[in-house]
Design a protein around this nucleic acid. Structure first.
Lengths: 358, 358
DNA sequence: CCGGCACTGTCAACCGATTGCCTCGCTGCC
DNA sequence: GGCAGCGAGGCAATCGGTTGACAGTGCCGG
């Protein structure tokens, strides 16, 4: 039906609004206002405070009265108004989750893990994206803070001072990056990277490369450092190939450099770049893993779909998200002593790694 | 650290609380309470209502006073408390987005499109998952409604009565499913499916299959109907292969039936199942597209990664999410006459389709 | 018979912002 | 000189729920 009928409805509404109840102005589009504890109180014949207590402090009110109140509330379809409660108590039962880039599959599992935990704990999740920009990230946290009890930021781009400043207002937890003095949840990259180096060495590789991610990312520097130290300790030669954007195309553009460097295997900052690199190899006729072995990082959705499927390091992102959310909720509740679990990473060997060419 | 230390802290807190400011009880963990308009008013020496007006009704207040108020607000780090405003105005500037399954990449683009629009319009996004269960979906919408101005449900599993009931409380918009009397945004599946049938016919296929999705899904029935009518009109034979779960494994388990049916090409309910089917074909040594051509639906992330890459139907999910959010915001604002754009689907030919075996 | 206590329920203040209505003072015009 | 008109700002009610203080009732033991 086109809008003729819609306008008809609008007229009807206006006629309804002409009654002498000024609250009717809120009732746009024939929607009825929600029932309040005052409505319930009136029906049952008690005071609003009694209704509040009956619903929230079991036992505080006579069992029979409580039962009558519950019935009436049910009948009226009463729902507590979280805003009203929040105004007085200062607790909104909402937490914010901020990721830098929704398009990055790395975050999917984290979001899922965090959402499950938040829901389980009775918290509502507010979701926002910072579009990889630290200024937007800061402004978004500031904007969201009054509405939520705490903020979980994944892979924050803020500097430590900014994080500390935000932390003065409401609890904040950082995932995927350690920050001094701020609760954070970070998987142990070392276990998986060590396995990767060992794996490559066993396959006969002597010279490996690291295709870098953005140099401003803590995770990138961290991975390089571990890789470097361990490769050197193992007597392998290692080079860092400077980064492009941490997306598939950013992997693809670096293929020529990688080949020119003479390495036989490359560990890539993340799976997205690794996937782009594999695609480019196929396009250019470079044999993977015959000519070049490739190891990714994160084991994102899609890593096992591509051909050859990607050998990568699983960083159990779902658990990271869940643990970070538990950590945040502990902060929010003032619970002391929540210790996030150790989250080791581990190598998942698939088809993109094989013996070094002789 | 166990609870001994925790109690020690509690004592400290209690000592702090012994000052004569009762508000100190709110200041848990040395976090300072947010500044209010009362604080600003006191600093400037005006009444709170003046502060409110200065900040929200430009021109209502003397320009110099307004300037002083803005300065003081800035200096105090004042942020408006959305709860307080919401309580009075009934507008929370938040909208809920409910998807049935975060793990399904179909929803990624939709979430992204919706998030961008919501942010652009100054709305905060509340995010929840219904875990593919209609009871959870209903309860979640009910739970969220008091906190938000409207709800966007993607691929709702509710029946029309339930949706209508929820719609009585707050605006609700459904994406990916048409519901009588409720605003909805659904791409036009027909354009893409017709192209797919034509494409397969041009390749010489005469007998095609449709690997079905869950029979309760509107989209599944809809796609079958279009496919059926068009294939018949084109003089092709077509069979429906009953569904398993709409996930990769649900595609894999149906390979034997598909082969047994004698079809040379199969259109699959969604990309996830198609991806599973391709994987299974590789595992079983079935040549794709030599023996069997496969067409997916949605063009999700990953469809172009798998080998052979998947011929599929792009349903521009990002635009669906964006349009649905605009639609919802129009409802929320009471703006009449928002007309969601026509969203045609279109075939994307990749490697998984080829000439029919002779 | 009375003090004390447990049990139920009410009162009223409060959270922070918004807004209709009012007041005060000044200007300008008849 | 008187009064309308206007600009600037204050007062107080309001949104819905929570909570400390308190009142009324009934019951108990001493």
């Amino acid at each position: 039906m086109p809008y003729g009928l819609g306008n008809g409805h609008a007229v009807t509404v206006r006629i309804q609004m002409s009654d002498d109840n000024p609250a009717a102005v809120h009732r746009i589009g024939n929607r009825k206002p929600a029932a309040t504890i005052y409505d319930v109180a009136e029906v049952v014949g008690v005071s609003p405070s009694t209704v509040s207590r009956a619903l929230n402090k079991p036992g505080r009110i006579n069992a029979k009265t409580e039962e009558r109140i519950r019935h009436a509330a049910e009948a009226l379809g009463y729902r507590l108004n979280p805003m009203a409660r929040a105004l007085l108590t200062g607790k909104t039962a909402m937490v914010a989750l901020l990721v830098s880039d929704i398009t990055n599959p790395v975050f999917y599992d984290i979001v899922r893990g965090a959402e499950n935990v938040a829901t389980e704990a009775g918290y509502t999740l507010v979701f926002a994206e910072s579009h990889q920009r630290s200024d937007i990230e800061f402004a978004t946290v500031e904007r969201l803070q009054p509405s939520v009890d705490g903020v979980l930021v994944v892979a924050s781009l803020l500097d430590e001072d900014q994080i500390a400043q935000l932390s003065e207002t409401k609890p904040i937890v950082i995932a995927l990056r350690p920050v001094e003095g701020i609760p954070h949840v970070v998987p142990n990259s070392e276990t998986g990277l060590v396995q990767a180096v060992d794996h490559l060495q066993e396959l006969g590789h002597r010279s490996i490369g690291y295709l870098s991610g953005p140099t401003t990312f803590w995770a990138n520097r961290h991975r390089w450092n571990i890789l470097f130290e361990h490769a050197v300790a193992k007597g392998m030669s290692i080079v860092e190939i400077p980064p492009d954007d941490p997306v598939p195309n950013g992997g693809a553009t670096r293929l020529r450099r990688i080949l020119a460097s003479g390495v036989t295997a490359v560990v890539v900052y993340n799976d997205l770049m690794a996937i782009g690199l594999i695609s480019e190899c196929k396009r250019e006729g470079v044999d993977v893993p015959g000519r070049l072995s490739i190891v990714g990082f994160d084991d994102v959705y899609g890593a096992n779909l591509i051909s050859p499927s990607l050998t990568t390091i699983d960083s159990s992102l779902g658990k990271v998200g869940g643990a970070a959310m538990w950590c945040l909720l502990a902060e929010v509740d003032g619970t002391t002593g929540y210790e996030p679990p150790e989250l080791p990473t581990r190598l998942i060997v698939r088809e993109s790694t094989a013996s070094a060419p002789s």
